[in-house]
Nucleic acid binder design. Structure first.
Lengths: 126, 126
DNA sequence: CCGAATCCACAACGATACTG
DNA sequence: CAGTATCGTTGTGGATTCGG
């Protein structure tokens, strides 16, 4: 994505394409709501409204938007039950569950270093 | 993380405080630029301008903002050399390096599942 | 070279209302 | 209940400038 030079070689073109895809994907998932959805969903299957109830502060709109994005990227599977009233369930796919493991690491880190961070903040703010 | 109930117990108050801190922290670091900075910085020490050159597309403003935030949270250490011209170097702290390990996991994931994701996108878009 | 402040375009977001 | 669309507001982030 940084290379401005163009060699015409197909191999390099492929690399650039893969690189830009990786970056795009990274931008997609490196956001607060997407990561929270992955965490809350975990290995379970949850309805839209259940997700919304369990993710504090998320709006209807943000939830749908992120779920669409995650479905598009193959992180969640969307299952529509043609009942009245409608019922839509979401489940992490295999790639989604794999990603969850790394997000778990981030959460663990957060709790592990909570003390460090709080101290650092107090020092910085004062 | 979601509990709305209030019991008045000091222990629960502590938990709520820690919880809100964790959320705040999560919102801070769960963003594209912060994670990219952590990745690029790695174990090295880099100047402001070097960081800027190596992170494609980041603006001066975003870089400073995120570096401040990360310094405040104790993820990076900022070292000012009182020379002319000025020289400011940034290094990951120990908590920062610990976090990097989990971010590495995210990057690995990205590359590992690139094929899945591309296929899923093509299917979704078509 | 680095940082802070200003301005402002534009995207993100919440609220609302309507459909199946 | 879940999804889409629209609207109005907020706020993010880029460009620029000036100061240390």
């Amino acid at each position: 994505m940084v290379t401005k030079q163009f060699t015409g070689s197909p191999d390099e073109a492929d690399l650039r394409r893969a690189d830009s895809l990786a970056r795009e994907l990274f931008s997609d998932i490196a956001n607060k709501w997407a990561l929270l959805i992955i965490e809350v969903l975990g290995g379970r299957t949850l309805r839209f409204s259940e997700l919304r109830d369990q993710i504090d502060g998320i709006s209807h709109k943000m939830l749908t938007q992120n779920l669409r994005m995650m479905e598009r990227n193959g992180l969640v599977e969307r299952e529509v039950h043609p009942t009245v009233p409608p019922k839509v369930e979401y489940t992490l796919t295999e790639p989604g569950r794999a990603l969850k493991k790394t997000v778990d690491g981030m959460c663990d880190w957060t709790h592990q270093y909570l003390g460090h961070i709080e101290a650092s903040r107090n020092h910085f703010d004062g």
